[in-house]
Design a protein around this nucleic acid. Structure first.
Length: 451
DNA sequence: AACTAGGCT
DNA sequence: GTATAAGCCTAGTTG
């Protein structure tokens, strides 16, 4: 523990005196409450979207059969690859190969999108069948008698993140044509609102601090748009002259830092030549010497100690860091770079949840006292006072979900603004990094609206 | 059970 | 020569 505080001091970080093990013990009852509370699902909305998309899917599949000249199993990558590259003779150079042949992943198909009308159809088919089979069909079958969905949170990950399963509520769609509609089916109870509170670039703030990277620290202190700042650096332009495409590329570079980027990886992510990607990375490290140094330090530590760790002491052992098989050792190097950052961000979120749980509990006690008093003074029945609050009077505002850098809270509409500020303050203040921590807030009747 | 694919941060 | 940006969970196909 003393080690941890000492380490934090060196980095200019103020953290609560608590170990990773203690964080995990204390988060358990919080997660249990969230699991039991569940989140209300608008099953009718999902069912009608299911009907709509299933109809659309049938039409698209018929068109695929027509273009193919025969019926085949569209869900089989083997059969589809055979059709595309053997029968239709579409070009397969430049496409990734899997163990079973040419990849038909959407990312690869986009490269030959203009070669044949069947490709756009396949992409649309994939999107629809994914949504239908993973979300629209299964989720409505899992709700309880109150239309609420109960996930199970897990603590067993290699970085310290949480997992969510049966159902996984950490991969509910948000992008794409229908993502928003699906997320909008996660609704607040009558008379209540959802608050969605998101850490803004928490991993980059963490790495800026762990790496003591002067340029990145300055960017966050000044409240700059970090991606456009990076764009200005790697393209050697003024920040105001950064184009949207330059910003998009810089965003990928920033993601890459946290992932242990390689020229090849960046080139794939951006669909650009490897040497162009290599240039961006080279320029980036010329500006961000602190980041470069952090990367070297983590790799060295993994070699010397056999593990890397977060600020709070969660460890990840990397037994193959010295493997003579290069891609094995390189994979563990990337884990060594990523884990302390992803893991520390996860710990910050867990600590915020523990803190927020306490604050909401004490707030709820006050509400309860107030409501009891109102009931006594008014001669109204309890049910009339709390009508619309279809949950225990002692538990009015509560956390429902968490998605890595986000917390979703359910709260009586009348208290939403006040509680949102409490959530934001708890999340922003739970630890003091060497840069400000920012949380963005949304309030709405459903999860899409609250983002 | 392995593989491929694809949803999220 | 071989792989190739971190961490998860779920669904469908294949053998």
């Amino acid at each position: 523990m003393n080690d941890l505080l000492e380490k934090a001091n060196k980095l200019g970080i103020k953290i609560p005196a608590i170990t990773a093990e203690e964080i995990n013990e204390q988060i358990k009852p919080v997660l249990k409450k969230m699991e039991e509370a569940g989140v209300m699902l608008d099953c009718e909305a999902l069912n009608s979207l299911d009907v709509k998309l299933s109809d659309k899917l049938k039409v698209i599949e018929a068109e695929i059969y027509e273009k193919a000249g025969r019926e085949l199993n569209i869900g089989s990558p083997i059969q589809m690859a055979d059709l595309l590259f053997n029968e239709l003779k579409l070009p397969s150079e430049g496409l990734r190969r899997t163990k079973s042949g040419v990849s038909t992943a959407a990312q690869e198909l986009k490269k030959i999108e203009d070669c044949h009308p069947i490709i756009p159809l396949m992409l649309e088919q994939r999107e629809l069948s994914k949504l239908i089979s993973t979300y629209l069909k299964p989720l409505p079958l899992l709700v309880d008698e109150n239309s609420r969905l109960h996930t199970t949170y897990g603590l067993e990950t290699s970085t310290g993140r949480l997992t969510s399963s049966e159902p996984n509520l950490q991969n509910i769609p948000i992008r794409g044509t229908f993502g928003g509609e699906i997320r909008a089916a996660f609704v607040a109870t009558e008379g209540m609102k959802l608050i969605a509170a998101d850490y803004s670039q928490i991993e980059l703030r963490v790495v800026a601090c762990m790496a003591k990277d002067t340029a990145m620290i300055e960017a966050f202190e000044q409240g700059e748009d970090i991606h456009s700042r990076t764009a200005a650096e790697i393209f050697n332009v003024k920040q105001k002259d950064v184009t949207p495409d330059q910003r998009r590329k810089a965003k990928a570079v920033n993601f890459g830092i946290v992932y242990g980027q390689t020229p090849y990886g960046l080139s794939q992510a951006l669909n650009i030549p490897v040497d162009e990607a290599a240039k961006y990375i080279k320029t980036y490290f010329e500006v961000h010497k602190g980041i470069k140094n952090y990367i070297n330090e983590m790799i060295e530590k993994a070699h010397s100690d056999g593990y890397v760790e977060t600020i709070f002491g969660t460890r990840r052992y990397l037994p193959n860091i010295a493997s003579h098989i290069r891609y094995i050792s390189e994979a563990e190097e990337r884990m060594a770079i990523n884990m302390p950052v992803q893991g520390t961000a996860a710990e910050i979120l867990k600590l915020a949840m523990i803190k927020l749980d306490r604050e909401l509990s004490s707030l709820n006690t006050k509400y309860e006292a107030r409501n009891t008093k109102q009931i006594q003074n008014s001669n109204l029945k309890n049910s009339e006072i709390v009508s619309g609050f279809d949950i225990r009077v002692s538990d009015l505002a509560h956390m429902l979900l968490t998605v890595h850098d986000e917390i979703v809270v359910e709260v009586p509409s009348s208290e939403a603004k006040q509680v949102a500020q409490i959530v934001k303050d708890a999340m922003e203040g739970v630890v003091k990094l060497c840069v400000p921590i920012e949380v963005s807030l949304g309030i709405g009747d459903n999860w899409a609206e609250a983002k």
